[in-house]
Design a protein around this nucleic acid. Structure first.
Length: 300
DNA sequence: ACTCAGGATGGTA
DNA sequence: TACCATCCTGAG
């Protein structure tokens, strides 16, 4: 389940054609959405499209001239399942204007104009970002894929590949750490994955989240093995829709130091600087700056 | 063979 | 509280 459900859904510029659904939305570019480091459960296809899995559904997105072609889901399913996943209840044209408080942010929002912050499944997000600790994106993706293949349930085939759901805590708590290490290549994170799964299965995340502040949830997340400040912030931003959160990894640290702070400072200071500067929109700013900074290798 | 990228953890000061 | 070595893998 994703935690953020919009009450009302607006009508999208969505047209049904024999090839699939055509979505016309300026702030919606598959490349920007999937290459900004927020998710790992997707596949880049030979035709330039992206295939992703969410809540047991396979969706494929291909960018065209003036629209995005959406394949493998019907109109109803798209509204039902993917409207919230793709955060379509949020007006990103407005977000980009509001977050463009200086020329740097103007450039960054211009550069990654099609970014949307996904609202992802909680357990999958927790485990994925435990794996992300001290790790690189291709290897994180590989680990997530293998864990899904070995412990998840078969969903279906698409473009010559079989897709599996990400397992739930009940299954992953019984995985053998040495298997996770051997097959999914998760290294020293093996035990953390199993232990966190056990704790979550035992109810570590069973709280009324809506009544808790971001800081209170953060504290609880950090109690999980393998979850420190940065991983907790990613979970808050990507699974709890806490958009004021500003995860600080090495990339965003470099970008902030290079473009804003003008000197090297501890990660904590980067975060407080960003929070004070971007306020409630810090999470959006983080995504635009991360994508821009990483693609352009700023600070490297 | 060697170097490097990438956060959490547990130890020490 | 702050700092720092260590953990593992695979690409270059």
């Amino acid at each position: 389940m994703n935690r953020y459900i919009n009450r009302e859904k607006r009508d999208l510029a969505l047209r049904e054609t024999p090839l699939g659904l055509e979505l016309r939305e300026n702030s919606f570019k598959p490349r920007h959405i999937f290459e900004c480091g927020q998710c790992f459960n997707f596949n880049y296809e030979e035709d330039g499209s992206y295939t992703a899995v969410f809540l047991g559904k396979i969706i494929n997105l291909l960018e065209k001239e003036d629209h995005v072609l959406i394949r493998n889901v019907d109109r109803e399913t798209f509204y039902e399942i993917f409207y919230d996943y793709f955060d379509l209840g949020v007006d990103y044209e407005k977000i980009k204007k509001e977050v463009s408080i200086d020329t740097t942010l103007e450039r960054a929002t211009d550069y990654g104009y099609g970014i949307r912050i996904l609202n992802q499944e909680l357990f999958e997000t927790v485990i994925s970002f435990i794996i992300s600790a001290n790790n690189q994106i291709p290897r994180i993706k590989k680990a997530v894929r293998i864990i899904s293949e070995r412990y998840g349930t078969y969903i279906g085939d698409f473009m010559g590949r079989s897709y599996y759901s990400f397992p739930d805590a009940q299954v992953l708590k019984d995985a053998r750490p040495e298997d996770l290490r051997e097959y999914a290549r998760v290294g020293f994170r093996d035990k953390r994955i199993v232990d966190a799964s056990q704790m979550i299965y035992d109810g570590a995340l069973d709280f009324d989240w809506d009544s808790l502040s971001t800081l209170e949830i953060r504290k609880k997340l950090i109690e999980l093995p393998g979850v420190g400040p940065k991983v907790a912030d990613c979970i808050l931003l990507f699974a709890f829709h806490r958009r004021e959160t500003f995860p600080v990894d090495v990339w965003i640290k470099r970008v902030m130091e290079t473009l804003f702070i003008k000197k090297e400072v501890p990660k904590k200071e980067v975060e407080s600087y960003a929070r004070a500067y971007f306020k409630d929109l810090a999470g959006y700013a983080q995504q635009y700056l991360f994508y821009y900074g990483r693609e352009e290798k700023i600070g490297k």
